[in-house]
Amino acid sequence: MPHIKPRQIVIDTDPGIDDAIGILLALASSEFSIAGITTVAGNIGIDTTTRNAGRLLAFAGRNDIPVFKGAAAPLSRPGPEPLNLHGKEGIGGVDLPAPARQPEGRSAVEWLTEFLLNEPAGTIDIFALGPLTNIARLILDNPEAAKRIGRIITMGGVIYEAGNVGPRSEFNLWADPEAADVVVSSGLPLVLVPLDVTRRVRATREFTAALSASGKPLASMVADLIGSYFETSTHQESRPLHDPCVMLFALAPELFRMEDLRLSVSTGPTGEAGALIIGETGAPVQVATGVDGPAALDLLARTLASS
Protein backbone atom coordinates (compact mmCIF):
# COMPACT_ATOMS: atom_id res chain seq x y z
CA MET A 1 0.00 0.00 0.00
CA PRO A 2 1.25 3.54 -0.72
CA HIS A 3 2.36 5.56 2.26
CA ILE A 4 -0.21 8.17 3.24
CA LYS A 5 1.39 11.43 4.31
CA PRO A 6 0.29 12.45 7.82
CA ARG A 7 -2.11 15.39 8.03
CA GLN A 8 -0.47 18.53 9.37
CA ILE A 9 -2.28 19.84 12.43
CA VAL A 10 -2.02 22.58 15.01
CA ILE A 11 -3.40 21.86 18.48
CA ASP A 12 -4.90 24.90 20.20
CA THR A 13 -5.31 23.94 23.84
CA ASP A 14 -5.61 24.78 27.54
CA PRO A 15 -4.28 21.61 29.23
CA GLY A 16 -6.29 20.39 31.29
CA ILE A 17 -6.58 16.63 31.95
CA ASP A 18 -8.70 15.78 28.92
CA ASP A 19 -6.63 18.15 26.74
CA ALA A 20 -3.55 16.21 27.84
CA ILE A 21 -5.18 12.92 26.84
CA GLY A 22 -6.04 14.37 23.44
CA ILE A 23 -2.50 15.67 22.91
CA LEU A 24 -0.96 12.31 23.83
CA LEU A 25 -3.40 10.56 21.49
CA ALA A 26 -2.35 12.86 18.64
CA LEU A 27 1.32 12.22 19.44
CA ALA A 28 0.69 8.47 19.34
CA SER A 29 -1.02 8.51 15.94
CA SER A 30 0.92 8.15 12.70
CA GLU A 31 -1.91 9.96 10.91
CA PHE A 32 -1.02 13.37 12.37
CA SER A 33 2.03 15.57 12.06
CA ILE A 34 1.86 18.21 14.80
CA ALA A 35 3.34 21.43 13.45
CA GLY A 36 2.94 23.27 16.73
CA ILE A 37 0.89 23.69 19.88
CA THR A 38 -0.73 27.02 20.67
CA THR A 39 -2.00 27.66 24.17
CA VAL A 40 -4.91 29.62 25.56
CA ALA A 41 -6.17 30.43 29.05
CA GLY A 42 -9.23 28.40 29.95
CA ASN A 43 -9.14 25.54 32.41
CA ILE A 44 -6.37 27.46 34.18
CA GLY A 45 -4.16 30.51 33.52
CA ILE A 46 -2.03 30.93 30.41
CA ASP A 47 1.35 30.42 32.09
CA THR A 48 0.22 27.07 33.49
CA THR A 49 -1.46 25.86 30.30
CA THR A 50 1.69 26.78 28.35
CA ARG A 51 3.93 25.01 30.83
CA ASN A 52 1.71 21.93 30.77
CA ALA A 53 1.96 21.75 26.98
CA GLY A 54 5.74 21.78 27.30
CA ARG A 55 5.66 19.16 30.05
CA LEU A 56 3.59 16.79 27.90
CA LEU A 57 5.98 17.17 24.98
CA ALA A 58 8.97 16.60 27.28
CA PHE A 59 7.38 13.40 28.60
CA ALA A 60 6.76 12.15 25.06
CA GLY A 61 10.28 13.07 23.94
CA ARG A 62 8.90 15.42 21.28
CA ASN A 63 10.98 18.52 21.82
CA ASP A 64 10.90 19.10 18.06
CA ILE A 65 7.34 20.46 18.41
CA PRO A 66 7.24 24.19 19.28
CA VAL A 67 4.81 25.72 21.78
CA PHE A 68 3.44 29.23 21.28
CA LYS A 69 1.78 31.14 24.09
CA GLY A 70 -1.61 32.56 23.14
CA ALA A 71 -4.41 34.56 24.69
CA ALA A 72 -4.32 35.16 28.42
CA ALA A 73 -7.91 36.44 28.52
CA PRO A 74 -11.07 36.43 26.40
CA LEU A 75 -11.60 38.96 23.61
CA SER A 76 -13.76 41.37 25.59
CA ARG A 77 -14.82 40.06 29.01
CA PRO A 78 -13.13 38.79 32.17
CA GLY A 79 -11.77 35.27 32.08
CA PRO A 80 -13.31 32.41 34.09
CA GLU A 81 -12.01 31.21 37.41
CA PRO A 82 -9.75 28.12 37.15
CA LEU A 83 -11.55 24.77 37.24
CA ASN A 84 -10.78 22.90 40.45
CA LEU A 85 -11.44 19.50 38.88
CA HIS A 86 -8.10 19.70 37.00
CA GLY A 87 -6.03 20.24 40.17
CA LYS A 88 -3.58 22.98 41.12
CA GLU A 89 -1.33 22.42 38.10
CA GLY A 90 -4.26 21.81 35.79
CA ILE A 91 -3.14 18.28 35.03
CA GLY A 92 -4.69 16.23 37.82
CA GLY A 93 -1.56 15.88 39.97
CA VAL A 94 0.07 13.53 37.45
CA ASP A 95 3.88 13.57 37.55
CA LEU A 96 5.35 15.08 34.37
CA PRO A 97 8.86 16.38 33.68
CA ALA A 98 9.65 20.06 33.31
CA PRO A 99 9.53 21.42 29.76
CA ALA A 100 12.74 20.67 27.86
CA ARG A 101 12.14 23.60 25.49
CA GLN A 102 10.92 27.07 26.29
CA PRO A 103 7.89 28.57 24.52
CA GLU A 104 8.76 30.38 21.32
CA GLY A 105 9.17 34.15 21.28
CA ARG A 106 6.35 34.77 18.84
CA SER A 107 2.75 34.75 20.01
CA ALA A 108 0.32 32.05 18.91
CA VAL A 109 -1.45 34.33 16.43
CA GLU A 110 1.79 35.70 14.99
CA TRP A 111 3.07 32.19 14.33
CA LEU A 112 -0.25 30.89 13.00
CA THR A 113 -0.39 33.77 10.53
CA GLU A 114 3.11 33.15 9.19
CA PHE A 115 2.70 29.38 9.14
CA LEU A 116 -0.62 29.39 7.29
CA LEU A 117 0.63 31.89 4.70
CA ASN A 118 3.71 29.78 4.02
CA GLU A 119 1.94 26.41 3.66
CA PRO A 120 -0.34 25.35 0.78
CA ALA A 121 -3.90 26.55 1.39
CA GLY A 122 -6.19 23.93 2.88
CA THR A 123 -3.43 21.65 4.14
CA ILE A 124 -3.44 22.64 7.82
CA ASP A 125 -6.17 21.59 10.26
CA ILE A 126 -6.63 23.15 13.68
CA PHE A 127 -7.76 20.95 16.56
CA ALA A 128 -9.26 23.36 19.11
CA LEU A 129 -9.58 21.99 22.64
CA GLY A 130 -10.22 25.18 24.64
CA PRO A 131 -11.80 28.61 24.34
CA LEU A 132 -11.58 29.89 20.76
CA THR A 133 -9.81 33.19 21.53
CA ASN A 134 -6.65 32.52 19.48
CA ILE A 135 -8.56 31.42 16.40
CA ALA A 136 -10.98 34.34 16.64
CA ARG A 137 -8.07 36.77 16.91
CA LEU A 138 -6.49 35.18 13.83
CA ILE A 139 -9.74 35.61 11.90
CA LEU A 140 -10.16 39.23 13.00
CA ASP A 141 -6.56 40.36 12.53
CA ASN A 142 -5.37 38.17 9.65
CA PRO A 143 -8.39 36.98 7.64
CA GLU A 144 -6.31 36.01 4.59
CA ALA A 145 -4.25 33.61 6.69
CA ALA A 146 -7.38 32.23 8.41
CA LYS A 147 -8.96 31.45 5.02
CA ARG A 148 -6.12 29.03 4.34
CA ILE A 149 -7.11 26.71 7.23
CA GLY A 150 -8.24 23.29 5.97
CA ARG A 151 -10.80 22.87 8.73
CA ILE A 152 -11.25 23.55 12.39
CA ILE A 153 -12.36 20.67 14.58
CA THR A 154 -13.37 21.96 17.98
CA MET A 155 -14.72 20.50 21.19
CA GLY A 156 -17.40 22.86 22.39
CA GLY A 157 -21.03 23.69 22.85
CA VAL A 158 -24.14 21.65 23.48
CA ILE A 159 -27.00 21.10 21.05
CA TYR A 160 -29.89 19.08 22.46
CA GLU A 161 -28.87 18.55 26.09
CA ALA A 162 -28.26 20.70 29.16
CA GLY A 163 -25.03 22.66 29.46
CA ASN A 164 -22.29 22.19 32.05
CA VAL A 165 -21.84 25.86 33.10
CA GLY A 166 -25.29 27.18 32.28
CA PRO A 167 -28.66 25.84 31.15
CA ARG A 168 -27.52 25.76 27.50
CA SER A 169 -23.83 26.58 27.75
CA GLU A 170 -20.66 24.48 27.64
CA PHE A 171 -17.42 25.73 29.23
CA ASN A 172 -15.23 26.34 26.14
CA LEU A 173 -17.78 28.50 24.32
CA TRP A 174 -18.99 30.12 27.55
CA ALA A 175 -15.44 31.14 28.53
CA ASP A 176 -15.19 33.41 25.47
CA PRO A 177 -18.56 33.63 23.70
CA GLU A 178 -17.47 36.57 21.54
CA ALA A 179 -14.61 34.47 20.18
CA ALA A 180 -16.92 31.52 19.60
CA ASP A 181 -19.29 33.82 17.72
CA VAL A 182 -16.45 35.03 15.47
CA VAL A 183 -15.37 31.47 14.64
CA VAL A 184 -18.85 30.03 14.11
CA SER A 185 -19.96 32.95 11.92
CA SER A 186 -16.71 33.08 9.93
CA GLY A 187 -17.78 30.62 7.24
CA LEU A 188 -14.56 28.64 7.70
CA PRO A 189 -14.96 24.84 7.51
CA LEU A 190 -15.94 23.93 11.07
CA VAL A 191 -16.68 20.63 12.78
CA LEU A 192 -18.19 20.93 16.26
CA VAL A 193 -17.96 18.08 18.78
CA PRO A 194 -20.36 19.06 21.59
CA LEU A 195 -21.27 17.65 24.99
CA ASP A 196 -24.01 15.59 23.33
CA VAL A 197 -21.18 13.39 22.04
CA THR A 198 -18.40 13.71 24.59
CA ARG A 199 -20.64 12.65 27.47
CA ARG A 200 -20.90 9.24 25.77
CA VAL A 201 -17.14 8.65 25.92
CA ARG A 202 -16.27 7.65 29.48
CA ALA A 203 -13.61 5.21 30.60
CA THR A 204 -14.03 2.40 33.12
CA ARG A 205 -11.47 1.31 35.66
CA GLU A 206 -11.01 -1.88 33.64
CA PHE A 207 -10.14 0.30 30.65
CA THR A 208 -7.47 2.23 32.55
CA ALA A 209 -6.04 -0.99 33.97
CA ALA A 210 -5.68 -2.39 30.45
CA LEU A 211 -3.91 0.78 29.31
CA SER A 212 -1.49 0.53 32.23
CA ALA A 213 -0.83 -3.13 31.49
CA SER A 214 0.10 -2.40 27.87
CA GLY A 215 3.58 -1.33 28.92
CA LYS A 216 3.55 1.61 26.53
CA PRO A 217 4.61 4.91 28.14
CA LEU A 218 1.95 7.08 26.46
CA ALA A 219 -0.77 4.56 27.27
CA SER A 220 0.34 4.34 30.90
CA MET A 221 0.36 8.14 31.21
CA VAL A 222 -3.15 8.35 29.76
CA ALA A 223 -4.24 5.70 32.27
CA ASP A 224 -2.86 7.89 35.08
CA LEU A 225 -4.59 10.96 33.67
CA ILE A 226 -7.92 9.17 33.38
CA GLY A 227 -7.41 7.80 36.88
CA SER A 228 -7.46 11.37 38.17
CA TYR A 229 -10.69 11.94 36.26
CA PHE A 230 -12.87 9.65 38.38
CA GLU A 231 -15.04 11.69 40.73
CA THR A 232 -14.43 9.41 43.73
CA SER A 233 -12.51 6.23 44.49
CA THR A 234 -15.74 4.24 44.21
CA HIS A 235 -16.92 5.55 40.84
CA GLN A 236 -16.52 2.94 38.13
CA GLU A 237 -16.87 5.38 35.22
CA SER A 238 -14.78 8.49 34.57
CA ARG A 239 -15.92 11.98 33.81
CA PRO A 240 -16.43 12.48 30.06
CA LEU A 241 -13.28 12.42 27.94
CA HIS A 242 -14.26 15.61 26.12
CA ASP A 243 -11.20 16.78 24.22
CA PRO A 244 -9.85 13.45 22.91
CA CYS A 245 -13.09 13.24 20.90
CA VAL A 246 -11.62 15.84 18.51
CA MET A 247 -8.74 13.52 17.65
CA LEU A 248 -11.01 10.48 17.59
CA PHE A 249 -13.31 12.20 15.10
CA ALA A 250 -10.36 13.09 12.86
CA LEU A 251 -9.14 9.49 13.00
CA ALA A 252 -12.50 7.76 12.49
CA PRO A 253 -15.38 10.06 11.46
CA GLU A 254 -17.46 6.98 10.69
CA LEU A 255 -17.88 6.43 14.44
CA PHE A 256 -19.84 9.67 14.73
CA ARG A 257 -23.36 10.65 13.65
CA MET A 258 -23.25 14.04 11.96
CA GLU A 259 -25.81 16.76 11.31
CA ASP A 260 -25.48 19.87 9.17
CA LEU A 261 -26.91 22.69 11.30
CA ARG A 262 -27.07 26.45 11.02
CA LEU A 263 -25.78 27.86 14.30
CA SER A 264 -25.19 31.16 16.03
CA VAL A 265 -23.67 31.83 19.45
CA SER A 266 -25.28 33.83 22.24
CA THR A 267 -23.07 36.65 23.52
CA GLY A 268 -25.60 37.66 26.16
CA PRO A 269 -25.21 37.81 29.94
CA THR A 270 -23.28 35.16 31.85
CA GLY A 271 -26.14 32.68 32.18
CA GLU A 272 -26.77 32.69 28.42
CA ALA A 273 -23.23 33.22 27.14
CA GLY A 274 -21.97 30.60 24.72
CA ALA A 275 -25.35 28.97 24.13
CA LEU A 276 -25.78 27.68 20.59
CA ILE A 277 -28.89 28.74 18.69
CA ILE A 278 -30.19 26.70 15.75
CA GLY A 279 -31.85 28.84 13.10
CA GLU A 280 -31.88 29.86 9.46
CA THR A 281 -29.83 32.98 10.17
CA GLY A 282 -26.97 30.91 11.60
CA ALA A 283 -23.80 29.80 9.81
CA PRO A 284 -23.49 26.24 8.45
CA VAL A 285 -21.59 23.93 10.80
CA GLN A 286 -20.98 20.18 10.73
CA VAL A 287 -22.03 18.95 14.16
CA ALA A 288 -21.41 15.56 15.75
CA THR A 289 -24.58 14.55 17.56
CA GLY A 290 -23.90 10.88 18.26
CA VAL A 291 -20.99 8.48 18.73
CA ASP A 292 -20.25 4.80 19.16
CA GLY A 293 -18.68 5.27 22.59
CA PRO A 294 -17.19 1.77 23.04
CA ALA A 295 -15.66 1.86 19.55
CA ALA A 296 -14.20 5.31 20.25
CA LEU A 297 -12.57 4.05 23.45
CA ASP A 298 -11.26 1.00 21.61
CA LEU A 299 -9.67 3.29 19.01
CA LEU A 300 -8.10 5.38 21.78
CA ALA A 301 -6.59 2.27 23.38
CA ARG A 302 -5.36 0.77 20.11
CA THR A 303 -3.70 4.01 19.00
CA LEU A 304 -1.92 4.47 22.32
CA ALA A 305 -0.82 0.84 22.39
CA SER A 306 0.70 1.14 18.93
CA SER A 307 3.05 3.97 19.88
Results as ranks from 00 to 15, higher is better:
residue 211 L to H: 08
residue 254 E to K: 12
residue 185 S to Q: 10
residue 153 I to L: 15
residue 176 D to L: 07
residue 194 P to C: 00
residue 172 N to Y: 02
residue 220 S to D: 14
residue 249 F to W: 14
residue 197 V to N: 02
residue 159 I to E: 00
residue 198 T to M: 08
residue 149 I to E: 08
residue 157 G to N: 03
residue 178 E to G: 00
residue 192 L to Y: 02
residue 149 I to S: 12
residue 236 Q to K: 15
residue 200 R to P: 00
residue 194 P to W: 04
residue 149 I to R: 10
residue 248 L to R: 10
residue 141 D to E: 15
residue 133 T to K: 13
residue 195 L to E: 00
residue 128 A to W: 05
residue 137 R to K: 15
residue 238 S to F: 04
residue 159 I to C: 02
residue 232 T to Q: 09
residue 192 L to F: 02
residue 247 M to W: 04
residue 244 P to R: 13
residue 165 V to N: 05
residue 158 V to M: 02
residue 189 P to A: 10
residue 209 A to Y: 00
residue 218 L to D: 07
residue 164 N to Q: 02
residue 232 T to W: 00
residue 161 E to H: 11
residue 171 F to E: 05
residue 212 S to R: 15
residue 205 R to P: 08
residue 250 A to D: 13
residue 187 G to K: 07
residue 185 S to M: 02
residue 136 A to S: 09
residue 153 I to W: 09
residue 155 M to P: 00
residue 253 P to I: 09
residue 220 S to M: 13
residue 136 A to T: 05
residue 256 F to H: 06
residue 242 H to Q: 14
residue 246 V to P: 05
residue 175 A to P: 09
residue 235 H to F: 11
residue 132 L to I: 02
residue 239 R to L: 14
residue 133 T to S: 14
residue 190 L to R: 10
residue 222 V to H: 06
residue 208 T to W: 06
residue 226 I to P: 03
residue 226 I to V: 15
residue 174 W to V: 03
residue 178 E to C: 03
residue 208 T to G: 03
residue 254 E to F: 05
residue 208 T to P: 09
residue 141 D to R: 12
residue 219 A to W: 07
residue 246 V to Y: 11
residue 185 S to Y: 01
residue 256 F to P: 08
residue 207 F to P: 07
residue 177 P to T: 08
residue 204 T to V: 12
residue 214 S to C: 07
residue 230 F to Q: 11
residue 133 T to A: 11
residue 145 A to R: 07
residue 191 V to Y: 09
